[in-house]
Design a protein around this nucleic acid. Structure first.
Length: 418
DNA sequence: TCTGGGGTCCTAGGACCC
DNA sequence: TCTGGGGTCCTAGGACCC
């Protein structure tokens, strides 16, 4: 169990978050039909080639439908599958409501993703399970959705615990429970063992987490390099990272990408889409108070081949037109002329805009650009994203501002590591 | 029949310098 | 003309997460 110097970490995980949150919204708007109780999914529309399952109800899961499946395949498994579109603004509100409630319990909270949080509850030396249960009950009653809470001495084990069945429960996975509760599980269920790693481990005849835990770590490192050490540690429950109150300023990079409803085969069209993506990404960059000095373009072709190319800027900037020049250059340098299915823009090497390095030669011009961007951002914030649109987009068939967890993204996305 | 979008981190290989 | 090795930095791609 818990000893004196142990931390107590909660991991709160909303069950089928998107589906639950849409269900709650429908009920709040007067529906009497709870989509959690029938086969249903949240998915984009196939017509625009966004037809992927983002979340599935438990009845849908029982029919073999899971996140990431293609919509038409899911429909074949269940003829009267109910399909609902995602509503990201609502999901952000729901997520925020959850976090607000968690702050009543502890100030040390790390938002790991839109539907997962770590919370350091080391202050509750006794009855932490009882506290978790009452927290879970409050979330159900006051917010209307269910979650799992995992409890342990570190974040990894707490996260593993919150995956345990049954759903809508509190589970513990303390170090002295690893052997019984975690080691019998298939190795692919360990955090950070994805498909590629699992395949390699299977070749070494490692099939359960317990087999991984007792395997020679040096042999593992030979096959998996640093990943070998990491998963071996995780299989043994070793992980010591802090619950760090996330600061949105310390993101490493940001980007937007879009799968286009049709294949793009000419430069002008691709360029318009890239500008549209640059607009939304640069806006987020400015909102974050950051400058970037490296930009990258990514391309996915109609045959699903992906590649990317990056371009260093001459100085750090948050100016849409400067960033777009870099993006356009990068695209010209790498596009091989295939039909394009998806385009992406990514900004990295971020720094704070407190230390804006002015261009000595056209100081006035760049001053003006900064003011222009700031003004446009303010107008769009006030009157909506489409209130100001570049003339190039009018009648072009391309949305002026494409993609993006725009202003509502007030948490950093999770990393793959804790 | 068709296959999303947002992230972080690591690594192999090439360029360049000494 | 041909030969080496080590260090650093950069890039593209691939691993993982939700």
């Amino acid at each position: 169990m818990i000893s004196k110097n142990d931390r107590i970490i909660f991991h709160i995980d909303v069950n089928s978050a998107y589906l639950s949150w849409t269900a709650v919204k429908l009920l709040q708007y007067g529906s009497t039909h709870d989509i959690r109780k029938v086969p249903s999914v949240i998915a984009g529309d196939s017509e625009n080639r966004h037809g992927i399952i983002l979340a599935a109800s438990i009845p849908a899961k029982k029919l073999g439908i899971k996140t990431g499946d293609v919509l038409w395949q899911a429909k074949m498994k269940c003829r009267d599958l109910e399909v609902y579109p995602p509503d990201y603004d609502w999901y952000m509100k729901s997520s925020r409501a959850l976090v607000d409630m968690l702050y009543e319990y502890s100030p040390k909270i790390q938002r790991y993703s839109i539907d997962e949080c770590f919370m350091d509850c080391s202050n509750y030396r006794e009855n932490y399970v009882g506290i978790a249960k009452s927290l879970k009950a409050r979330i159900s009653e006051e917010l209307g959705f269910n979650c799992n809470i995992g409890i342990s001495q570190n974040k990894l084990l707490a996260k593993m615990a919150s995956d345990f069945k049954p759903k809508n429960s509190v589970h513990t996975l303390f170090k002295d429970e690893i052997e019984k509760k975690m080691w019998p599980l298939p190795v692919g269920e360990l955090f950070m063992v994805g498909r590629a790693t699992r395949t390699k481990l299977t070749r070494l005849n490692i099939n359960t987490i317990g087999e991984l835990a007792s395997f020679d770590v040096n042999i593992l490192k030979g096959f998996l390099h640093s990943q070998g050490q990491l998963v071996h540690d995780y299989a043994n429950g070793i992980e010591n990272s802090e619950v760090r109150s996330s600061n949105y300023l310390d993101i490493k990079g940001l980007g937007n990408s879009i799968t286009i409803a049709y294949d793009v085969d000419n430069f002008e069209e691709a360029s318009r889409i890239l500008l549209s993506l640059t607009e939304s990404t640069a806006m987020r960059l400015r909102e974050n108070g950051s400058l970037c000095s490296l930009v990258a373009v990514s391309i996915k072709t109609d045959t699903f081949i992906s590649y990317s190319h990056q371009k260093k800027l001459t100085r750090s900037t948050d100016c849409t037109s400067e960033i777009f020049e870099g993006i356009k250059q990068a695209f010209i340098e790498c596009w091989k002329g295939e039909n394009i299915r998806q385009l992406g823009v990514r900004l990295t090497k971020l720094s704070s805009n407190e230390y804006r390095q002015e261009n000595l030669f056209d100081y006035v011009a760049s001053e003006k650009q900064v003011k222009l961007d700031t003004t446009i951002d303010a107008l769009r914030k006030r009157y909506g994203k489409d209130s100001i649109v570049r003339s190039i987009f009018i009648n072009s068939g391309v949305k002026a501002i494409e993609g993006g967890t725009g202003s509502h993204s007030d948490y950093p996305m999770m990393g793959s590591i804790l």
